[in-house]
Computed example of a mutant assay.
Amino acid sequence: MALFLLGRRFFTCRADINMTAVHAYCSSVASGRQRVNGVDLYYEQTGRGRHAVLLLPGALGSTKTDFGPQLKSLNKELFTVVGWDPRGYGQSRPPDRDFPSDFFERDAKDAVDLMKTLGFSKFSLLGWSDGGITALVAAARNPNLINKMVVWGSNAFISQQDLKLYEAVRDVSKWSVRMRQPMEEVYGAEVFAKTWEAWVDGIAQFAHKPEGSICLELLPLISCPTLIIHGEKDPMVPSFHPQHLLQHIKGSRLHLMPEGKHNLHLKYADEFNKLVEDFLQQ
């Protein structure tokens, strides 16, 4: 859930990237749209490393709101970093976002097919919150394509405790201006409020499935090295969720950040980026 956001960045270096419908709108990030599964998906790409990495944003999130410090500071010699806006989010509109029962599966297919369209035969996943759930699905469904995976602020099932947390944030008019503003800049106040309510209903539907499963049955299918990061002060993701992932993803490891909240990759970007770079290089 992309409740805490960052919308400002951009820097300097060349964008030597040759792609369809791409323009370099700053000197280090190339942006463009690719037609994937019937929709035009917006993405940004930076770096020239051999190790490709896809950033997967949280609910209603986008490259612009969710991953500024990663696009800026992940090692551009080692990694080629791609951020994207899932269909109906950010600049991947139209279409308007909807939340059918398979929306995580749909996002996972879109994400993988986007990377294949961009010419990446194997890549790693960095997934935050809803993006982490999408990454779990993508890794389970595409074991031969995924190199490594990092997920944080994510869950594979919905508990009654989770439902209460989601209902508590349903009404965005009760959010602080600081929390609302980045999303309202992307969507406008009315569309943001409407889409957020639709997301709350969309995520809540999983509570009616056996064991509240979003993707419980897929966790044993994940074979790539997986790093789970959890902020111990995360107000939206109870600690039993990363523990469950650790227990059910073979060979995974868990790193706890004692002061981390839901947006730990933004608030503690230097620590997070180093942790990720070290893991991806191992």
Rank of each mutant, 00 (worst) to 15 (best):
Ser121Ile: 00
Thr117Tyr: 00
Arg8Tyr: 13
Asp107Arg: 00
Val137Glu: 06
Phe192Glu: 07
Asp110Phe: 02
Tyr25Arg: 13
Asp107Ile: 00
Leu266Val: 09
Asp234Met: 06
Leu41Gln: 09
Gly47Trp: 07
Glu184Ala: 08
Pro220Met: 03
Cys13Pro: 07
Ala189Phe: 01
Lys76Thr: 12
Lys267Gln: 15
Gly68Phe: 01
Gly38Glu: 11
Leu216His: 02
Leu245Asn: 06
Val22Trp: 04
Leu221Ser: 15
Asp113Glu: 15
Ser73Met: 08
Ala111Trp: 07
Leu218Thr: 01
Ser173Pro: 05
Leu136Lys: 05
Ala156Val: 03
Phe192Pro: 09
Pro258Phe: 01
Ala138Gln: 10
Met236Leu: 14
Asn273Pro: 13
Tyr42Gln: 06
Ala269Met: 00
Gly202Pro: 06
Asp270Tyr: 02
Gly188Gln: 06
Trp84Arg: 04
Val82Ala: 08
Ala111Arg: 02
Asp85Ser: 09
Asn37Val: 05
Asp162His: 07
Met257Glu: 14
Asn155Val: 01
His241Arg: 04
His23Asn: 12
Val276Asn: 08
Val36Ser: 12
Leu163Trp: 01
Gln181Tyr: 11
Asn37Ser: 14
Ala207His: 15
Ser239Arg: 10
Lys116Tyr: 00
Ala189Lys: 15
Val191Gln: 15
Gln45Ile: 15
Phe272Ile: 10
Gln247His: 10
Leu254Thr: 02
Gly127Thr: 03
Lys164Gln: 12
Gln281Asn: 13
Ala2Ile: 01
Glu105Tyr: 05
Ala24Ser: 14
Pro242Asn: 04
Ala21Pro: 02
Leu136Phe: 04
Ala204Trp: 01
Arg178Gly: 09
Arg106Gln: 14
Arg170Met: 03
Gly212Asp: 04
Ala156Arg: 07
Glu271Cys: 04
Gly188Ser: 10
Gly68Ser: 13
Ala168Arg: 05
Ala198Arg: 06
His230Trp: 12
Glu259Ala: 12
Pro69Phe: 06
Val81Asn: 11
Asp85Glu: 11
Ala198Val: 01
Ser101Lys: 06
His262Phe: 08
Ser92Lys: 09
Leu41Cys: 10
Leu74Ser: 08
Ile222Asn: 07
Leu3Ile: 10
Ala139Cys: 11
Gln247Asn: 13
Thr46Met: 12
Gly119Cys: 10
Met183Pro: 09
Leu280Ile: 02
Glu44Ala: 11
Ala52Gln: 10
Pro143Phe: 06
His208Asn: 08
Val200His: 01
Ala140Tyr: 09
His255Ser: 10
Asn147Lys: 10
Gly88Leu: 09
Asn273His: 06
Leu5Lys: 04
Trp128Gly: 03
Lys267Pro: 00
Val39Ala: 15
Arg9Ala: 15
Gly61Cys: 07
Cys13Thr: 05
Leu125Phe: 08
Glu190Ala: 11
Asn273Val: 05
His23Cys: 08
Asp66Arg: 01
Arg253Gly: 12
Leu216Val: 02
Leu55Ser: 11
Gly7Val: 00
Glu105Ala: 14
Ala30Leu: 07
Ala52Glu: 10
Pro95Arg: 02
